[in-house]
Amino acid sequence: MKRTRIILAGILLSAWTLPAAAGNDRPIVVGELPAAAREFLRTHFDGLEVSYAKVDEDFFDKEYKVVFVNGAKVEFLEDGLWKELDCKYGEVPAAAVPRQIADEVARLFPERKIVSIDRGRRDYEVGLDNGLELTFDRKFRLTEMDD
């Protein structure tokens, strides 16, 4: 009986303390980003003033977020590869968009600008300045359009 109470108390204590350790956001300076992320920012967002940068540390991974004064934001995975680019008041730098996606958007929507792109495990979601959202698979084939 005493053993059962001790085990139950351990489980309850774990249930209270584990969520407190998850979702640990903390501000960082750009110099604390992974090297690949710093190089990406230097290449595609050079000259833009950073509003803030933060790291979100979970149990098994880290994600980084950089927000610029002009409202643009970039999210990176733990290894420094970009996960999401959102330039809601401007255009995603053309060199940051995979060439096949940029070519297809230019062919189908020649007057439109790419304002966001999100790289998922299975696809890319691209937002255009007219509100249209396009989904491309990992082979860069257009699979869905949503407005």
Rank of each mutant, 00 (worst) to 15 (best):
K65Q: 14
Y64P: 00
E39Y: 01
V29K: 13
V67Q: 15
R26Y: 14
F59K: 03
G131V: 05
D58H: 12
E104F: 06
K65S: 14
R119Q: 13
L108T: 01
K113C: 00
E125Q: 11
M1K: 12
A72E: 02
A94F: 09
K83F: 10
A37L: 09
L48S: 11
R112V: 05
V50S: 10
A22R: 08
A94P: 04
D129N: 14
L48T: 08
F45S: 07
A36M: 09
D118L: 08
V126W: 02
A72S: 14
I6A: 12
V105G: 05
E63W: 05
R107H: 11
G47S: 09
G23P: 07
E133W: 03
E57S: 15
V50C: 11
I28V: 13
E78P: 05
E75P: 01
G127D: 11
P19Y: 06
E111F: 03
K62V: 02
R38C: 09
R99V: 12
N24D: 13
L12T: 11
L48M: 12
E49R: 13
D61N: 07
I11H: 07
E75R: 12
S116G: 14
S116E: 13
P110M: 10
M145Y: 04
P19S: 03
V55W: 05
V97L: 05
L77V: 00
V74P: 10
R141V: 10
A21P: 00
N24M: 11
L77A: 10
M1W: 08
A72N: 05
L33H: 09
F136I: 04
D56H: 13
F136D: 01
P27D: 12
A94S: 13
F68G: 01
V74Y: 00
T43P: 02
I114P: 02
G90Y: 09
N24H: 15
Y124F: 13
I28S: 08
E75K: 14
D79C: 01
D103G: 03
P110H: 10
G131N: 03
I7C: 07
R38D: 06
D146Y: 03
G120Q: 12
C87G: 09
L13D: 03
A37C: 05
L13H: 04
N70M: 07
E78N: 12
K113A: 05
T143W: 00
P98L: 08
R121W: 06
I11R: 08
D103I: 00
R122A: 10
V69D: 14
A106V: 03
D103R: 10
K65E: 15
G120M: 03
L33K: 07
E133K: 10
T135I: 02
E32V: 04
D61H: 01
D147Q: 09
V66P: 02
L48C: 02
P19W: 01
V29F: 04
F40P: 06
F60I: 08
M1R: 10
E63M: 01
L12V: 15
A94I: 08
E125W: 02
L48Q: 15
F40A: 12
D137W: 03
L13T: 15
L41G: 11
L132D: 00
E125K: 14
L128Y: 04
R141P: 00
F136S: 02
F136P: 00
I6N: 07
F59P: 00
L41M: 13
E144S: 14
I114C: 05
V66T: 00
